[in-house]
């Protein structure tokens, strides 16, 4: 698929990305950010553009399992990476546990920061460095919420973390 302008003589570069489990072989201008690639040509508009400068976290996605700001990544620099966006985490019928917890805890108001919050929270649980509420708050500080749903966001993450810990304790016991 060629997502660059067909009539353009500007340079493009080949890049192969796996996005939500689907392989994409792309020809891109090198200045296209991962965020603009997702939201534009790929129409994955769940990932939001807030500040576009790595300050708000609304664009957070998982690259090879690690949460990053997609606005600060040139898509061509991610050749061979596996990218997971909010669309890849779950669907309305089959939600990811973190999506479910955000719903149950009313962890949003306007919802604009929510996809980034959820991707970031999934990354946080995977990293395994948060063990209590203070550490959750510190390690979620890269995601701003103008509505101020922070308390409920921390509740949702705490619940999922608790469930994960119970699950791994059970597996260890077995």
């Amino acid at each position: 698929m060629d997502l660059s302008s067909q009539t353009s003589s500007l340079p493009t570069c080949s890049v192969s990305l796996s996005i939500n489990g689907q392989k994409h072989d792309l020809e891109l201008h090198p200045w296209v950010s991962l965020l603009d690639l997702l939201r534009g040509p790929l129409e994955l508009t769940g990932t939001k553009k807030g500040c576009d400068h790595g300050q708000c976290g609304a664009c957070t996605v998982l690259v090879d399992g690690q949460r990053v700001n997609s606005c600060l990544k040139l898509a061509v620099s991610l050749d061979g990476s596996e990218i997971t966006t909010i669309e890849g985490l779950g669907s309305p019928e089959n939600m990811h546990p973190m999506q479910k917890a955000f719903l149950e805890h009313d962890a949003y108001q306007c919802g604009y920061c929510t996809p980034g919050q959820i991707c970031s929270a999934v990354g946080l649980v995977g990293e395994g460095h948060a063990h209590n509420r203070a550490e959750i708050r510190e390690l979620m500080s890269g995601n701003l919420c103008r509505c101020g749903a922070y308390t409920n966001i921390a509740d949702a993450i705490e619940e999922v973390m608790g469930a994960e810990a119970a699950k791994s304790n059970k597996e260890a016991a077995e």
Partner: peptide, 9 residues
Amino acid sequence: GASAQLRNA
């Protein structure tokens, strides 16, 4: 320094 996302990148 920074945030978890920035430190990852």
